[in-house]
Design a protein around this nucleic acid. Sequence first.
RNA 1: GCGCCCGUAGCUCAGUCGGAUAGAGCAUCGGAUUCCUAAUCCGGGGGCCACAGGUUCGAAUCCUGUCGGGCGCACCA
Length: 594
Amino acid sequence: MRFAPFRLTARAMSDRKTLHAAFAAKVDAVLAALEAEGVLPAGVSRANVTVEPPRDASHGDLATNAAMVLAKQAATNPRALAERIVEHLGRDAQIESAGIAGPGFINMRLADSAWRREIGAIAGLGSDYGRSAMGAGQRVNIEYVSANPTGPMHMGHCRGAVVGDALAALLEFAGHEVVREYYVNDAGGQVDVLARSAHLRYREALGEDIGAIPEGLYPGDYLKPVGEALAAEFGDAHRDRPEGDWLPLFRERAVAEMMALIRADLALLGIHHDVFASEAELQRAGKPEAAEAWLREHDLVYDGLLEAPKGKTPEDWEPVELPLFRSTRFGDDQDRPIRKSDGSWTYFGADLAYHMQKAEGADALIDIWGADHAGTVKRIKAAVAALSEGAGGRTIPFDVKLVQMVQLLRGGEPVKMSKRAGTFVTLADVVREVGKDVVRFTMLTRKPEAQMDFDFAKVVEASKDNPVFYVQYAHARISSTLRKGAAEGVAPAPDALDRLGGEELALVKQAAQFPRVVEAAAQAREPHRIAFFLYDLAAAFHAYWNLGNDDPAKRFIVAHDNELTAARLFLAAQIGQVIRNGLALLGVEAVEEM
RNA sequence: GCGCCCGUAGCUCAGUCGGAUAGAGCAUCGGAUUCCUAAUCCGGGGGCCACAGGUUCGAAUCCUGUCGGGCGCACCA
């Protein structure tokens, strides 16, 4: 069952009461009362009733569509039903006013005391403010990055890495048990090429003049240290031996070195996986065979002729008989081979087994892939659907998030990259140039399925067009204000929160959205919503701050009024707390000063 | 040819399960600094939500088609 935050479900009611959930509960209680009075028919479905902030803040703090949704079932018109609901809501001391608007919306304005209480709630929960129990008991496996272990990370991998990592943190914060996983493709032809490239560098390290790197081998300098390490360890023992003698060994060593490189690159971004799953190990353990046997048993794999790709048949097309997975049964365009004609596993065959393995230890799976793999989504979804079907009806929710390409620009001009010449832009270069926080935040300021430009000239601009500085600046200002307050001998204190008025409470209203933004973002699996929330919160903070420019009485630190200063500093501290909590989900540092 | 993603202000993008007068930043024009950081704020102008149908109390949002951009389409990974 998918969980919809702030719908009036039993689930939402049982959650810890955030301010919004508490008021959703009040509305539900009113509807229950009306049902008892006979105004609403017994057992009416309230599933479509929402309680949420209206888009236009001038309408109030919360709005519900209850009257519009339920009018038909109550055999009345929306406005008449709304009047009955408003009548009940008006009796609640926490609701200052409730009114009917438009086609039957009910707008509520909450009492100031409710918002003041929320400031205390933030303080009480601290770094747990916004944490949700929504995913309690749910084990989610999220696989991201999974770059081939044939070289350092380049910018093409970056977006998926950041999105995956932020999503993992988000789901964890929303109560899920999260496993961060990296699938190491150390069994295909590419790692053989890597091993040969390493062998060449090994001969070079032994003093041989290897000349230009031949076509088909990896030319990058990053393999030189690998060759040197191999030379240091083995001397010339493997120099003149036939390939078959050294290939497995060199492959293993080179892959290990590449993974060390990749882990170091990921660490630069603050990314750490829990599990590195090796395709080679998976195969040694016989997992693909087991998957194949199971699938054959259920008539989901058969030996058949591989069809030509849809719409275009290559000149040299020859039909071959291969073990095929019936992915068409689950919506794919054609059945897909799990073994090659030499009997070895296709990428898909091994990947299928890998997903089976992941599904054993998780209630839900998420893959983050680059958009260039879009063509293979259907088959892997088909595979997981098949496993679900066979797993005794336990369906395994499975999302493949496609992350679109990032175009690198410098001052509006595309950055030229050539893999063959080895001139791709590495992730490490970019992080070194613009910093981790800029890379991470920028990658999260667009929904992942939209294409994106990354312009070096723009993202390092500390002033304009750059949300990360904007948000960090808000936090830095808060920190500096608290420092200044301390220097003047005033500590933040909640004793006189009743002296905070509408302008301060507007800030609280913004911050109080955080718990529901977390749940909505987690449910939609869209970490970018956190970034946009932080931007809005920072904007509200900066706006409030600038009131003090015109009117010194509106500054956080008010001369000769320690009571008010303490209350405002307390507010500032809690806004800072919410910003920190949000930035933590994005993996961006909340700086104390800039 | 087929599949997937995208199309919202001059530019880059948000837009909650279908909800009220579609929002922000940049750019542009006009303002604010003896002040806790102006790396900020306030205001003006700027929209056939690609186009055409459909679904309904209501559509940027859902459905169908068209156009435009991107990605992919063999036993590669």
